[in-house]
Every structure is written in C-alpha cells, then in structure tokens.
Amino acid sequence: MGESQAIAVDGLSKRFSSTFSVRDVGFCVARGSVTGFLGPNGAGKSSVIRLILGLERCSGRALLDGTSYVDLSNPARRVGVMLDRLPAHPRHSVVGHLRMIAAGIGVQNGRIDEVLGIVGLSDVASRKIRALSLGMAQRLAIATSILGDPKILILDEPANGLDPSGLIWFKSFLRGYVKEGGSVLASSHNLADVSVIADDLVVMSKGRVTAAASVVDFVEKFSHSYVQVRTDEPDRLALLLQSRGGRVVTRHRNRVHFDGLSAYEVAKLALEWGILIYELQDFAGSLEDAYFAFAEVPRDDVTFRSLTLSVTAKRRAVA
C-alpha cells in the first residue's frame, strides 16, 4: 500500500451459501480525495463497506492507513463510518447516543456539542432518536462518524433523506473535510452529486468492480460530447459538415447534433459556406451519461481502470 492511499482493498470476496455476493473486489482511495462508490441496488456496495470494516468475515484484505479496521487501535478515531441505516437505540436521545460512543472512543463531551453544531442538530440534542426525521437521522449518522475527528470517512448513501439545503450543506462539508486532508469513500445513487463531489469513482455490478477511475477519465471515456446547431438549412449544413469529418448524431427539424467537430470548427465552416446558424452549443458529457453508457454493456469484471487514481491527491494539492 502506497503512502498516498488512505484505503486499499484487495481481493475481497464473500460467499453466501453457494453464490458470491462480493467477488475479488479491489480498489484504492487516494489520500485527500473523495471516491464515489457507484452501482445499482444489490451490486454489493454496502456488503463491500461491511467487509472493509471487518463486520463480516471474508477473504482478501482491506487496509485503512495501512492497517485493517479490526487491528486499528481505537478505530473510530481514525476512520469515521456511516452505514446505510443509523444503528442506534430508538429510545436514546441524540446527545445520549453520542455520549455513549464518546465514552467508548475516549472523546471529551465538549466534542459532542461541536459535532452537533457542525451537522446542525444542536437544537434537537435532547430529542429521542425515534422522533427524528430521516434527514435528521442522516445528520446524526454523519455526526457519529466525525465524532472521533477521523482522517478517513466511509459513508454509505450519506445523501439519502437530506433535503436540498441539507445536500448543499453536505457537499460543502465534504469539500471542507477533504481540504483539511481527509479522505472519503462514499456510496451514492445520485450521480449528479457524485459528479460534483467525487474525484475518483469505483463502479460495482453484480458483486464485482467493473470500473475504477478518476471521474474525469471515466466521463471522457464513456460519455458522448456533441455540438448542437440550429439553422435554416440543416440538410446542406449536415452534408457539408460530413464532408469535413463531422457526423450527424441526431436531427430534429432545424436542430442538428454533430460530433467529430468542435463548436468553433462548425461556426467557422458555416461562416465560410454562408449558412445562417442561430444556435451553437457544446454539450460535454455528464457522469450520468457516462455511467449509463457504461452500464448498458453487461460486464463481469474490471473493464476500465485508469491509472490516474493515485495522482488525484497531488492534482488536488496543486490546484
């Protein structure tokens, strides 16, 4: 495991009865980066997180700061964890739940007020957990994960149940956390959020990792960029652009989508040929496009792994 890797997972496999739920999973999370953990329901994301944390026995290994979770001394001070549901006693109060964990990890009670302030739950500190809304419970789970001031966060669907303002808060929280040197592995269904937050991503399908790459590389590789043009002479423009290497992707009335040429090239050629265009726009591919394009093809194993993962932290530091 390199110094630049906060989490290194290698060959994790878990078999339930005769079938594998997780098979030969391997990836790493660069220090000082956010790695999005993607995949459809049942892909095995939550299982992998539980295996990384040693909550279930498996083959393979998962190292956090070079040590397995079970072997870490006072692990909650090194790795903050948020599981897909808040494992808390429903009759405990918010502050009571945090006090219990603080006692177990050797954190002063003053830190409890601090984390409640960070997640915006100070006003409901004495409320019973069963009376919390889903969004509040998520915030409490985040508070629990950062109680020990860890440098690594492993979050399973952290954005679930957060309202729009909660989402904005969460994104800014993660940015601040990573800026201070933290590393995050976060599973999510929300591709738009992942594309904003994550530097790298790991895609799982049917218990296997099918892609591990930087978000930029993944989008470049699998999404489709095109130029949208509106003109009075779509047929003529299409013919001419095709003769210069362009390709018509779609066409609807006077709107044409081309690829193979940049917006600048299209504008220059249209001017040259005297064709009036009254809309010209570059559409870069989104993570959502790339993800669905990637997921369309059935994959049984890693089919895309870029080598830029380990330099993400350096790139961020330079930026």
């Binding site: 909550l55 979770y69 079970v70 692990p75 909650a76 599981l83 808390a88 964990i101």
Partner: peptide, 8 residues
C-alpha cells in the same frame, strides 16, 4: 453494529 465499530 455501533458496538462493533467502536470495539471491532
């Protein structure tokens, strides 16, 4: 789960 995360 919480107990095992605190004391693995």
């Amino acid at each position: 789960l919480t107990t095992l995360l605190v004391t693995p």
